[in-house]
Computed example of a mutant assay.
Amino acid sequence: MERNLISHHAHADHPIAAPVSEGHLERLLTRAKLPARARILDLGCGEAAWLVRALSLYPDATADGVDLSDTGFAGAAEEAGRRGVSDRLRLHHTPAAAFTGGEPYDLVLCVGATHAFGGLMPTLDAVRGHLRPSSGLALVGEGFWERPPSPEQLARFGAEPGEYADLAGTVARAENAGFATVYGHTSTPDEWDEYEWSWTGTLTRWALDHPGPDGEAALAAAREHRDLWLGGYRGFLGFVTLLLRQS
């Protein structure tokens, strides 16, 4: 079963696809204070939950979503139609690192998708290339170490010691890349638990409802993810979403 399809089923009850609540998602987008007729880009948009909500908040904005997920785009189109923003949303089936948008954007998002560029710093470099000079904003969601993990935990998580910094170090990395932090949200333990229980539980339910090879693969993925979370990064890995402006 393809990883994109597993992710699609796992996020069915939590389409934000990050440990961020609905309220905090809208607060982050509202604090962007976008200008009239803003252009918005999401690199690694999945089902475009962030873009659909942004278009609802900014009724004269337009948005481009970039991803490789056909199933995610189907969900994005359905939700955009339900919210009445389909005419202002364009979806591009292409690697995030290969996308060229032509005109600059007022807001560029990459939340929980920095792996598409190889980490936070390459992501910030890529984002800068899409931003409107001076006034453009970036909304970037990234992991950080709540407390230093042991070598055993790093090995289980498949991470390198310097792959993430602590929270202060993560902000410093962004600012050293030429951005100023104008707002941010640090995901709470409750948001993390809601996200992870939803991810693993929703995928488990789908697997039990679909016996056969796909169901077995989905159930194995749910259990592997849950074990990695509960026995690995829970309490060690945090998540921060930073609203950044070029400095």
Rank of each mutant, 00 (worst) to 15 (best):
residue 88 R to G: 00
residue 109 L to R: 00
residue 97 A to I: 08
residue 109 L to E: 01
residue 104 P to T: 03
residue 80 A to V: 07
residue 108 V to H: 03
residue 109 L to H: 00
residue 81 G to I: 04
residue 89 L to R: 08
residue 85 V to I: 12
residue 99 F to A: 13
residue 89 L to E: 09
residue 81 G to K: 08
residue 106 D to S: 02
residue 111 V to M: 01
residue 81 G to V: 05
residue 94 T to A: 12
residue 109 L to M: 03
residue 108 V to N: 02
residue 95 P to Q: 12
residue 83 R to L: 12
residue 82 R to L: 12
residue 77 A to N: 08
residue 80 A to P: 00
residue 80 A to Y: 01
residue 111 V to A: 01
residue 97 A to C: 07
residue 90 R to H: 14
residue 103 E to P: 15
residue 85 V to C: 04
residue 101 G to V: 06
residue 84 G to P: 12
residue 108 V to C: 06
residue 89 L to N: 08
residue 80 A to K: 02
residue 92 H to C: 09
residue 95 P to V: 11
residue 107 L to C: 05
residue 77 A to G: 08
residue 100 T to E: 14
residue 97 A to N: 07
residue 99 F to H: 15
residue 98 A to D: 15
residue 107 L to H: 05
residue 82 R to N: 10
residue 77 A to S: 13
residue 86 S to W: 00
residue 98 A to E: 15
residue 94 T to E: 14
residue 98 A to L: 14
residue 85 V to P: 00
residue 90 R to P: 05
residue 86 S to V: 02
residue 94 T to G: 05
residue 111 V to K: 00
residue 105 Y to K: 03
residue 99 F to Y: 15
residue 107 L to P: 04
residue 80 A to H: 02
residue 88 R to H: 03
residue 94 T to L: 11
residue 87 D to M: 05
residue 80 A to R: 02
residue 83 R to H: 09
residue 77 A to V: 13
